[in-house]
Design a protein around this nucleic acid. Structure first.
Lengths: 64, 64
DNA sequence: ACTAAATGTAAAATATATTTGACATTGCAT
DNA sequence: ATGCAATGTCAAATATATTTTACATTTAGT
């Protein structure tokens, strides 16, 4: 699962901690998702989409 | 998390087992998701969206 | 009413996501 | 070169999703 979180953060000048805060998850969770260690849950993906005013598919993409 | 799986199945005259097959998960997983027992993983949501040619948000919706 | 298929449900086992706390590394400003 | 913030990472604990097996209930056809 690829994702554009790092870019979306950069556009807003947010740290991983800032994003974690906005998503109400731990900084490690944001880091692990950004670095591809695991996929976010669907609720978390929804939360991110709402936060950035984007569709889930515009943030995350299934390879394959 | 609400979802339209039951309707999408009905439109195609698919059983829960048929859908489970198409999604490569167990019938119980489909049942549990349809009846709101838990949320699908993000990869599974992607798979369903691909299967029905819909956006994830057109199948699943976060209440709140 | 009988039968078979579809659906709902439950418990135990496994897999995956998330948290917390902690520490190492990188990058940048001074 | 030092110091500090941001990032990467790890291990243990907890939460949640998924599988398997099994059985009960509902639905539809005959």
């Amino acid at each position: 699962m690829k994702n554009r979180l790092k870019v979306l953060r950069a556009e807003r000048d947010w740290t991983q901690g800032d994003l974690a805060n906005a998503l109400e998850v731990s900084r490690q969770t944001v880091n692990a998702i950004e670095t591809g260690k695991f996929d976010p849950s669907l609720p978390l993906a929804f939360k991110a989409a709402r936060l950035f005013n984007l569709k889930i598919e515009d943030i995350f993409s299934d390879e394959n």
